[in-house]
């Protein structure tokens, strides 16, 4: 009995009993879910309401009017500017994640319609190097704001990122300033910037553009913060309280405007945009 109650036991048990591809285990409540059902439910666990990390492409599909999303700034590619190598070469990591996700970077940018309202957006994809922000990701976010300033349209950024990308060193850090700089230019025109935070939004991403939305929305139970929970635990030598750095915790502490479930996000965005855009 003890064996099955231990975390490790559960995991292994899960692995053994799940037939490949048909079922998936919720990382939040450990419930086994039928994959088709999960997909129908917008990748939200029907048992505990955990919002699974979804690809940028899928998120665009959920948000925008059918067929209206057009990608922009697809002609910029990441470079290994520091010739960085840890246990693997950075170049190889980029290639691997590119093959895995079909993306060239952790962000896709573009424009689309939300109930016929034209919107510029950038969407982070956690599956590509943990959604980390290097030069190209920062550049795409910056370009989104520039484009929106020029075209006079609102901006929505969907963040899902571990933070700045270490493999690009100081250049990743500089993306924090770059994105903030472009937001302050954009804010000269009175159009809304809505920041939507999903699991996880940490480090250099939360400490730059993601925290500067006129309106900040989070998906339920997303991990959001500056320092990672393990770093904090190691620093203060204490266990962290239940629910620490989760969306509900941030709402309670006044850091975000609202928590919105994935099924409601499109309507919420439409409602906010309708109020904030002056024709």
């Amino acid at each position: 009995m003890l064996l099955f109650n231990s975390k490790k036991g559960k995991k292994e048990q899960g692995k053994l009993t799940i037939p490949e591809g048909l079922w998936i285990k919720c990382i939040s409540c450990n419930e086994i879910i039928y994959k088709k059902e999960l997909e129908r439910n917008l990748d939200v666990c029907p048992k505990c309401n955990y919002h699974f990390r979804i690809s940028a492409q899928r998120r665009a599909g959920i948000i925008f009017d059918e067929g209206s999303f057009k990608r922009l700034f697809e002609d910029i590619f990441p470079e290994d500017i520091l010739s960085f190598s840890d246990t693997k070469k950075y170049k190889d990591r980029l290639k691997e994640d590119s093959e895995k996700t079909g993306l060239v970077e952790s962000v896709i940018s573009g424009e689309g319609l939300i109930d016929n309202i034209r919107v510029a957006c950038s969407i982070f994809d956690f599956n590509f190097m943990g959604g980390s922000m290097g030069r190209v990701a920062g550049e795409k976010v910056a370009k989104t704001f520039e484009y929106a300033t020029m075209e006079r349209m609102p901006v929505i950024i969907f963040a899902s990122s571990g933070g700045a990308r270490m493999q690009e060193g100081i250049f990743s850090l500089m993306q924090m300033a770059e994105t903030v700089a472009m937001i302050s230019e954009y804010k000269k025109i009175s159009l809304p910037y809505i920041s939507v935070l999903s699991d996880p939004t940490m480090g250099g991403v939360s400490a730059s553009f993601a925290s500067l939305g006129d309106i900040i929305i989070a998906e339920p139970k997303a991990l959001i913060g500056f320092a990672g929970p393990r770093v904090i635990e190691k620093t203060i030598h204490q266990n962290l309280p239940e629910g620490f750095q989760r969306s509900e915790f941030l709402l309670e502490h006044g850091m975000i405007d609202m928590i919105v479930e994935r099924k409601d996000i499109k309507n919420t965005l439409r409602d906010l945009l309708s109020i904030l855009i002056n024709e």
Binding site: A227, V231, H253
Partner: peptide, 12 residues
């Protein structure tokens, strides 16, 4: 990196 710092919005 601490509890209070996160509660009071270090990132923001």
């Amino acid at each position: 990196p601490g509890i209070g710092a996160e509660e009071r919005g270090q990132a923001e």
